[in-house]
């Protein structure tokens, strides 16, 4: 029983650690995308959209690695 609950807690902990990456991907990806469109009005929107969400994802990885809890 204890082993089971410990495994569940480990899984929750892993989800918690990766939540910051998901948050940055969706939140900052959307913000970067909107800012890019607002400032540059690009012709190829798809490329900039993919690049923005990728930047959000990388920002999330950096935040996870650096333990930047403040981004959430």
């Amino acid at each position: 029983m204890n082993e089971k609950s410990s495994k569940t807690e480990d899984k929750i902990s892993i989800i918690e650690q990766w939540f910051i990456v998901l948050f940055a991907f969706v939140f900052f990806g959307s913000v970067f995308n909107a800012a890019t469109i607002y400032f540059f009005e690009p012709k190829n929107e798809l490329f900039f959209t993919v690049a923005s969400y990728l930047a959000g994802f990388l920002f999330g990885l950096l935040a996870k690695y650096k333990k930047w809890g403040w981004i959430v």
Binding site: F19, L22, F23, V26, F27, S30, V31, N33, A34, A35, Y38, W70, V72
Partner: peptide, 28 residues
């Protein structure tokens, strides 16, 4: 807390700059 942050993420998807300037930045 998780529910509120998920709501913030969904809101940011539909209204990114508004969520940044009306919610995220003021709260920080």
């Amino acid at each position: 807390q998780l529910f509120i942050v998920l709501t913030q993420m969904v809101t940011a998807f539909f209204f990114p700059l508004e969520t940044l300037f009306l919610w995220w930045l003021p709260l920080k």
